[in-house]
Nucleic acid binder design. Structure first.
Length: 572
DNA sequence: CAGATCCGCGCC
DNA sequence: AGGGCGCGGATCTG
């Protein structure tokens, strides 16, 4: 815990890491609580959920302490609201989750006082008033005790260095997530609403369809001869289609696209408009955009593979259609960067496949495979690699896998071995040591376990094998991305003016698996581009130390997100 | 009637 | 016989 050194009342902006024992102002911002309520908190009196530890040499760029707390999402939003930026932290909940599944960790070292309470911690809710909830839990939990346990478990592991890197990257990701929600994506509601009005018509009263969507529904009804049909009802739509002589098995767009009937066009148009209206329409604006910012809620490592998920705002799935509303502030620009073919590159690095690493040297890995004579076309290369990583067993993709296995034995052998391990019921791990959920555990709770029939059990095993096959690559890609984010975060901070708050400097506003968006003052945009690229190089070195692989970026400097070019397409 | 589940769609 | 997610509406279930 921090020493109790009391100093005068804080400035509005306080660098928490420099203030052991100092008083900071912590707002109970968020939710229905008054965001202006600010309390004085003596750091020495913070609940046991928060501790402080000296940072080891070489652990960070600036030295200084590392804040250790139960959950970044519990503390950091309020600190950010009070103008406090935390340089580094250790998120005990996230890290315990990693360690408790890591095959290279002696699980007995994680047991002890209150250990099961730490296991049971749910992610903090963003609207939870920070001080109340913490006070209740702190009677039981002691961050310093849990921290010591985790440090001990890491130190005793044969994979200590990689695990330490993973935990640091994971914790930094948690800081990034909170900072991105705090800053938000600059969002032009007027642009978004104009787009909605153009495609859907004026905003309808609650419960009604907008005019153009309603007209589209009417066209569908007329063409099917089914007045009163609700196109949103799958059973009704299916029945109406059959009455009209269209024999289809389901109502998916992909299926409708292949039928020959005049209703296909308006029906597909209906589906598209309906999705825009329900997913990213006016209601979405009301709920997720405030103060000219889109503020989704991220869950770092929210998925089993370590990828982020998002439980608010649909941050990880908002369509290209509305990205034109993400517009930089006046005098600012957006730097949009994504990695072309992240997962194949990660596979090359983690497997040490020199042939695939050679193909990865250019901006286009698939073209690199063509140039090396491994495949006839880009398309074949893509099919083969995606097939190998997803477990395709048939069709063109399956055939490509067979041929490429001979050409790239290490890379294709690695995913194949991961699949076989899964089929045997074994867990697998990422390069930095994250373990996958066990076969009987959270991967699939459904009680298919009793040997219903041998066939079902076999299918179950193979599904798990496909999961473990993909896990090793997707999970390691997530680790690379976390390192990229963590390093970029520090670089952006150093780029800003010494006294400027987070939002006054170049800062991350969006992250989506292999893509970042930085909001930056126009005069710093070029410098940001350089830092984004440098961070990608640094991440590659950190994660794939012994087998370097290139991670070239597609970078755009734009006013609107919609202008960002994506030469890499949708692969990986 | 609330809550769980399914479907279809979007993103990677 | 293709991996990971979230979301909204319709439908099913207790």
């Amino acid at each position: 815990m921090g020493d109790s050194v009391h100093v005068p009342a804080p400035a509005p902006r306080v660098h928490l890491t420099r203030l052991p024992g100092e008083r900071v102002r912590v707002g109970t911002a968020g939710g229905e609580h008054d965001p202006d309520v600010v309390e004085d908190v003596d750091l020495a009196e913070l609940p046991g959920l928060v501790a402080e530890r000296e940072t080891a040499h070489g652990e960070g760029p600036d030295g200084g302490p590392r804040w250790v707390w139960d959950d970044t999402a519990r503390w950091y939003p309020a600190l950010l609201a009070a103008g406090v930026r935390v340089a580094r932290c250790h998120d005990l909940r996230l890290c315990r989750r990693v360690l408790s599944r890591a095959p290279a960790v002696d699980q007995s070292l994680l047991r002890g006082e209150d250990a099961e309470l730490w296991d049971g911690l749910a992610p903090a809710q963003p609207s939870e008033p920070v001080l109340f909830s913490a006070a209740a839990a702190s009677e039981h939990l002691d961050a310093a005790v849990e921290d010591a346990r985790q440090l001990g478990a890491v130190a005793a592991s044969p994979d200590a260095a990689r695990l330490a890197l993973l935990l640091a990257a994971e914790s930094a990701s948690a800081l990034v997530a909170a900072e991105m929600t705090h800053a938000g994506v600059p969002w032009r509601v007027d642009v978004h609403e104009a787009l909605l009005t153009e495609r859907l018509g004026p905003r309808p009263p609650r419960g009604a369809r907008p005019r153009l969507l309603a007209e589209c529904a009417e066209e569908v009804r007329a063409l099917l001869g089914s007045p009163g049909l609700n196109p949103d009802s799958r059973p009704d739509l299916l029945a109406a289609l059959r009455r009209a002589g269209v024999d289809v098995a389901d109502t998916r767009a992909w299926t409708i696209r292949r039928i020959e009937h005049p209703v296909a066009e308006p029906l597909l148009r209906y589906k598209k408009l309906s999705h825009l209206f329900t997913t990213n329409g006016w209601a979405w604006i009301d709920e997720w955009v405030s103060g000219g910012r889109f503020r989704p809620v991220y869950q770092p490592a929210g998925s089993a593979t370590g990828r982020w998920s998002s439980n608010g705002g649909g941050a990880l799935s908002f369509p290209v259609q509305v990205r034109s509303a993400a517009v930089a502030d006046e005098g600012w620009l957006l730097v949009v960067a994504d990695v072309a073919q992240l997962e194949p590159r990660v596979l090359a690095g983690m497997s040490g496949d020199l042939g695939l690493a050679r193909a990865a040297r250019g901006a286009d890995l698939y073209q690199g495979m063509v140039d090396a004579g491994a495949v006839a076309s880009r398309q074949d290369a893509k099919l083969g690699l995606l097939g190998a990583m997803y477990g395709a067993t048939s069709g063109e993709s399956g055939r490509m896998v067979a041929g490429l296995t001979r050409r790239y034995p290490q890379a294709f052998g690695l995913v194949e071995e991961a699949a076989r391990a899964g089929e045997r019921g074994q867990v697998v791990r990422t390069l930095l040591g994250r373990g996958c959920p066990a076969l009987g555990g959270s991967w699939d709770e459904s009680p298919d376990a009793p040997p219903d029939d041998l066939d079902a059990q076999d299918r179950h095993r193979r599904a798990y094998g496909r999961f473990t096959r993909n896990f090793v690559v997707q999970g390691t890609a997530a680790e690379w991305a976390s390192c990229w984010l963590a390093d970029l975060r520090n670089r952006l901070w150093r780029l800003g003016d010494g006294d400027a708050p987070l939002e006054g400097r170049p800062h991350l506003v969006f992250f989506l698996h292999d893509e970042v968006v930085v909001h930056a003052p126009a005069h710093l945009a070029d410098a940001v581009v350089a830092e984004v690229e440098a961070a990608a190089v640094a991440a590659g070195t950190l994660v794939f130390r012994e087998h370097p692989v290139d991670f070239p970026l597609n970078v755009s400097v734009v006013r609107s997100y919609a202008e960002a070019g994506k030469p890499g397409g949708t692969e990986s």
